[in-house]
Each structure stands twice: as C-alpha cells, then as structure tokens.
Design a protein around this nucleic acid. Structure first.
Lengths: 221, 221
DNA sequence: ATTACTAGTAGACGAGTAA
DNA sequence: TTTACTCGTCTACTAGTAA
C-alpha cells in the first residue's frame, strides 16, 4: 500500500508531466509544490525510487524524474477510484428524518390551481392536498445541502385575490414506492433541517405515518 | 492545503458512499481500510471534522459520517487534477537519446519491397533506405516501456530467397519536423535502450546528425 | 462493543553541513 | 547552485485505559 505522502508527491510529479517524459526539477521546487521542506521532498523522491514508482537521474544541477509504469498504474488506480465515486454510479442521495406536523400552509398552497397545474406538469402527478413535513437528522442536513447542486424544477409564482404567491422550486424524489417532490419556496427563508414533501397520495394515510416516525427520502440525480 | 493523510481518509469515506448520504462505521473498520491503528483513524475523523470536510454523529455503536460540500469539493479538485493528467491533454511522449551507428541491418531490411510497401501504406511515406539508431538515456528507457500500451502498426513477415523475414511492428513518431516511425521486430529480442527509426529522408544528412548527437523523438498517442 | 483520552515512544521533520 | 547526509526536536503514532 502506497503511503499518503508518497502518493501526494507522485501526483505532483504527474502534474508536472512525469507521465509523458522526464521532468527536470530540484528538491526546492518540488518542496514548494508539496508544502514541505526540501529535505522532505528529497526523502520522498528517494522513497518513490525505492518503491520503483519513479526512475531518477540525479545530477549536480537537479534531477530528472520519470514516473515508471508501476507508478502510473498506482495513479490510475487512484483516478479510477475517484471516477467511480463521481461518475460511474448513478448518484443517489438518501435523506433521513422524522415526520413532524407543519403549519398547514402546505395544504393551502397545494389547493391553489396554478400551483397544482405546475406540479402536475413537472412531476407527473396531481398533488395530494397537503404536504408531509420531515425534520432531517444532522447527517441528512449535510446531504440536503448537496442537493443544491442538482437541477430543481421551477414553479412560477402568480397573483390572485389581491396578493401574490411566490415562486417555488421542486426536486423529484421517492418515499418507498411513491414518487414525490421536495418543495421549497425560492424567496422566503426555509429551515435547512425541514423537508416539505408533495406526493400523489396522503403518505400519512398510506403508510400510517405518525409524528416522530422515521422516513427515508431518496433522490436520484 | 489538505494534508495527504486526511485526504486519504476522506477518499476512503467517499468510496464507502459518504458523498451520497451518511456512512455508519467504526474507527476499527476505517483503520483497516487506511492501514493504521483505530486511534489514528479516530484522530483523522476529528481532524476532518475540524476542517469541516465531514460532519459526524458519534454514538456508542459507531459514528455516522457525511462528507460535506466542502469535503466533496476537495475530492473533486483532486479528481480534476488526475483527469487532466490522464484524459484532457493529448498524451505526448518525449524520448531523448544519442545517435549511434547500428549494424547496418536496417538499411538491408528497408531495401526489401514487401517491407517498403507496408511502411508506405501504414506511415504514409516511402522509407529511406536506412534507419537511424538511437541510444536512449536512462529516463527515456522508462518512457519507452510506456509506449507498449499504445497501438503499434503490424508489419507482416514474408518469405523470399529461401528464408523468412520476421514480423515487425511500428509506431508513428516525429523527429523535429519529420514524421517517422519506431520499428521493432516482434519475435527477436531487442535492447530496450535502443530505438530504430524509419524516416522518409536520411535524418543524418538532413540535420547533420553525427554519432553521439542528442535527438528527441516525439510520440503522440 | 464503541470513542477518545493520556502516556510513552518511534519515526518523521527541518536545520545545518558536506560533497 | 544542487543532493542527501547527520543530528536534535517535535510531531504523530500506537498502546493502554476510561467512559
């Protein structure tokens, strides 16, 4: 197993072009790129050479470093691991929390036709008049923040009855077998540990959810 | 700047799925994946938390770890760096060595019509009757080995004058402005520090190369 | 079982120096 | 200038232990 410090050094050498030919450098330049002393940089190069991860030609004016096949393989393993994390697997987020009782606003908004029509169009179902509120655990709050990077569906605001109804955004998700949506107002601030779920059916009725019951929300990016 | 050891730990957590939700683990399981003691694993987690790269919920039966947005960004930076090395840039190899005098076999083989025709077809030029032999420096020998992974052109053998002429392989390259090819017999062993170059013109004449002159061979994958 | 403390030690670090 | 040695220090590790 390659040591973290050695790996960092090997990667720095690759960035300098060590995979495509020899790189001329001094321990001083390498050390500044590693954030260590020149002595440590020198030690690292010796260590990499001993492990046959690089090949060296040391002269009085510096050294020529080439990453060997074995060294490149090591870097490619690292690369493959990261790619698996970020690319290969379908990115799926799991949020956990417990059912709570909201302010009843969800029920009201879900009864408004302009909202209903937009949810129907974007989520593919007629929203049940009422939302499920979930208080996320501390871990899921972090996951929740990550969802900001995903593509939310825009729900336009409108005016009616001498007032305006604000813009919202919505992210498709799933609770058990039921396709749902996370709804969030765009303008007004919303607690980061609360999730408001719109669904085609009443989830409390369907699954017998009561306050403080644990639920899992799946989001597939 | 994140420390190499912390980065290793963060990556291990990501492999376990820490980017898509919380991961339940114990210091013992983490330590075995890092190759350290459980104590060090514990310290790493504390360090990552202090840097706000992960969020933790520590219980008596283990801990739930979630990689924060900042932590994921750190990993993505790492990923981007490796991708630049292996994907983005056109992979170009540079080999260095000095001109030497070969055994004159190259000249003979290059005079044989079946070989000539195949070189013409695959490299796009009529080979000059004679090859340039190059002794690679120790660094370039390492680069030379890396070329094995590239796609070489097959040059078929043939029979003539009661003997057989062996199969060879060829890799397009460039010396200065001249498109050339590296030639290598397939069956017989060839010194790993010697490069035999076939070119459309006599390189010695064109550039006035003499023995011991330094030359650079560029290979673009 | 856990986590994370304290303690003692080993190894890594940077400064100085020689080649 | 370089590299890489020796040396003293201090960090970072593992072992043991408490919660």
């Amino acid at each position: 197993m390659i040591q973290p410090g050695d790996l960092q050094c090997l990667k720095a050498l690759a960035v300098m072009g060590g995979c495509r030919g020899s790189v001329r450098l001094s321990t001083l330049t390498l050390s500044s790129s590693l954030g260590t002393s020149p002595q440590t940089a020198s030690r690292r190069l010796q260590s990499l050479e001993r492990q046959m991860l690089v090949s060296r030609a040391v002269t009085a004016e510096g050294q020529d470093i080439t990453i060997t096949r074995k060294g490149e393989e090591e870097l490619r393993r690292e690369y493959a691991e990261l790619r698996r994390i970020f690319e290969e697997e379908p990115v799926q987020y799991t949020l956990r929390g417990q059912v709570i009782t909201g302010l009843g606003e969800g029920r009201y908004y879900m009864s408004l036709e302009p909202y209903r029509k937009q949810f129907q169009a974007s989520l593919g179902f007629e929203p049940y008049p009422g939302t499920l509120n979930i208080r996320l655990d501390s871990q899921s709050v972090q996951v929740r923040k990550r969802l900001e990077n995903l593509e939310w569906i825009r729900i336009n605001g409108f005016a009616a009855d001498h007032r305006t109804f604000g813009e919202a955004r919505c992210l498709p998700c799933r609770i058990r077998e039921v396709p749902c949506g996370i709804v969030l107002p765009v303008r007004s601030h919303y607690p980061e540990d609360i999730l408001e779920i719109v669904a085609p059916t009443g989830l409390r009725e369907r699954y017998g959810y009561r306050d403080a019951d644990m639920v899992e929300v799946e989001v597939i990016a």
